[in-house]
């Protein structure tokens, strides 16, 4: 992917550039909002990583002007701010996701993949969600386990996609319901999950009692 990195801090910019390049992306690094304006409109750019604090203009303003030009460029915002309101402000202005400093490189890459995928203009093998032997293809709407197709109902597919999109993060029951089954009651969520488990793997989806469900990366060893 071609990524436009908008970061004024020299050291952080260098670290970000290196991390993105290590992950196989091409990086255009600009340090001023004025330069960023031109690059973000460039057709070859697939996504942007934008630091909100810039010396010659607020990143939020940059984002607003970008969105006002009907650009659907996926933008991942990096910010030192963390108040709920300020986060929302960033998202309203058109950020696809935000990342609060400091962050793990892995998290940055995962979020970046996610915003690009949601943007829908990045057709690649990366558009597949995977956990262990299970692969979910969002474009083709298929799920395979060890290469063999798994038959899922639309609700089950939506649930699995929601859980895989937020891998290693617990989704609350309400969040899952909102994402996969807006019209059903919460009793049926358990039924769908139990069906999903039967069709995939028993201990694949873990219950967090009283909260919701989570799919954990099998190789993950915590922090």
């Amino acid at each position: 992917m071609n990524i436009c990195l908008v970061e004024d801090d020299l050291l952080l910019g260098r670290a970000l550039q290196a991390a993105l390049e290590d992950a196989g992306h091409q990086v255009v690094w600009v340090r001023m909002a004025s330069n960023a304006r031109d690059w973000l409109r460039n057709e070859s750019i697939d996504a942007a990583v934008l630091d909100l604090g810039l010396p010659d203009g607020d990143g939020i303003e940059l984002l607003r002007s970008l969105r006002s030009q009907q650009s659907s460029l996926p933008v991942l915002v990096i910010t030192a701010r963390e108040a709920l309101d300020q986060r929302l402000l960033g998202l309203d202005a058109g950020a696809d996701d935000y990342l609060v400093k400091p962050f793990a490189t892995e998290e940055l890459l995962a979020r970046l993949r996610a915003v690009v995928r949601r943007g829908g203009n990045w057709l690649d093998t990366d558009a597949k969600l995977q956990s262990g032997a299970l692969v979910l293809d969002e474009q083709r709407v298929t799920v395979t386990k060890d290469g063999q197709a798994v038959q899922l109902s639309p609700t089950e597919f939506a649930l699995l996609r929601e859980l895989l999109r937020h891998k290693n993060r617990v989704r609350t029951r309400r969040q899952l319901e909102a994402a996969a089954m807006p019209d059903s009651d919460s009793q049926s969520l358990d039924v769908h999950i139990s069906n999903l488990r039967r069709k995939t793997q028993r201990d694949f989806i873990r219950t967090v009692r009283g909260v919701g469900y989570v799919i954990e990366e099998p190789t993950t060893q915590g922090l």
Binding site: R169, V170, V211, G212
Partner: peptide, 26 residues
């Protein structure tokens, strides 16, 4: 209650890393 569940979900990775079980009654 839902907000509590969301905050618990947020902290869950830390608990999991330590092998702790979280029980929420909300």
């Amino acid at each position: 209650a839902e907000f509590t569940r969301e905050r618990v979900a947020h902290s869950e990775p830390l608990a999991r890393a330590k092998g702790l079980q979280l029980l929420v009654d909300a």
